[in-house]
Design a protein around this nucleic acid. Structure first.
Lengths: 211, 211
DNA sequence: ACCTGAACACCGTTCAAGT
DNA sequence: ACCTGAACACCGTTCAAGT
């Protein structure tokens, strides 16, 4: 029963699905593979490296659909769609966003592809290369970060009475009272995306008024 | 030599400054306080609670300067200034942003104050309460998250040759070649803030054309 | 080439017991 | 009220040795 990188990653993802990221240890993973923990060091140089490959595997299936927009001018729609796709992949596993957040772009090449494509698309939209890469980082950071928050959240109902019961006088409580729709997470995510896209459009108009 | 919450937090921040977040353990902290690790559980219910109080302490000094803008219409400048202040506080300690990222808003009340004030200011700018709180979350999330990335970065010079040497053909490498200024982190941070502020202005104009 | 045994140097947390 | 002793149930990582 020889193990290889791929089997290790797939088994790790299964444990992640079962028990979450902070119960994922090399010892438990090794046991699941019927091997001892140090054996994993033959295949991965560290736990972080393994986690980077997990993040890569999670995002890899979304990469083939990553071609830029047919018309460069359609970048706003492309960005919105890419944000949804990325978020969906991250939500497909518990703590998927956390995993991607700490990932090294060199090892998690699927994540790097997202960064590259987004930079290219924004460059095509009219940003200089430096600003395109800054805007891409801001954007992808928002998607991943926002999704971490969403995925880390206690749970839908607890928030209202549990934690925020004590901050009941504050504006946060009042605002939450207006955000009770079951799809509030989706709505809020897309609202953030709209802010970012609208902001990029505005900055483009500033420097390049005919866009 | 009785210890209290305040002394524990201050000592923890000193250890943080010396060795960083991942070398901060309750056992090391206890030793520094000349006490045994379980003693800390008299003062804090968990390590996370202690860390929340650390985050609170880091941000607390910025709270007195948090009053909203004199004129509600000046919210864009207020937002930009608040972003700079918050980032500066987070950068004042190693892994300060990490600490804030995971913090519970109920315990890290200084962070909650940032959320509240920002929500109020954006509500005053014309957003409905729900959208104001969404925009505030997006904004503060960006500030904290972006600062985590900045603070986690390998180090200024290593990036170019070390990691990205292998992705030399990619657009990331070309973009980085244009981002060599020593204050690139500041520039990029402010660029992100500009995107967000411009985006909020654009969304406000959509629904409320006389703003 | 791939894996084990044994160890190193730690963790957060609980809880009865001490003062 | 505040702290210790002792334990529970673990960690990631290294490295000589085995097959």
């Amino acid at each position: 029963v020889a193990i290889d990188r791929d089997l290790v990653v797939r088994t790790a993802l299964r444990l992640l699905d079962q028990d979450g990221l902070d119960r994922l240890s090399l010892r438990r993973l090794a046991a699941e593979l019927q091997v001892k923990a140090p054996a994993l060091y033959w295949h991965f140089e560290s736990k972080r490296a393994l986690m980077d490959h997990m993040a890569d595997a999670i995002l890899a299936e979304a990469v083939p659909g990553l071609d830029g927009p047919a018309d460069p001018a359609d970048w706003p729609q492309w960005l919105a769609r890419t944000a949804d796709v990325l978020r969906a992949r991250l939500l497909a596993h518990p703590d998927g966003a956390q995993l991607a957040l700490g990932a090294n772009l060199h090892r998690a090449s699927a994540l790097r592809r997202f960064v590259e494509r987004t930079t290219e698309v924004l460059h095509g939209a009219g940003f200089g290369l430096a600003d395109a890469s800054r805007a891409a980082a801001t954007f992808l950071w928002f998607v991943v970060g926002r999704t971490v928050e969403e995925q880390t959240l206690p749970d839908p109902a607890t928030i209202q009475r549990g934690k925020l019961g004590k901050t009941g006088s504050s504006i946060i409580f009042k605002a939450m009272a207006e955000r009770t729709a079951p799809d509030d997470q989706d709505v809020s995510f897309r609202f953030g995306v709209r802010i970012l896209v609208a902001g990029m459009q505005a900055l483009l108009r500033e420097t390049d008024p005919d866009a």
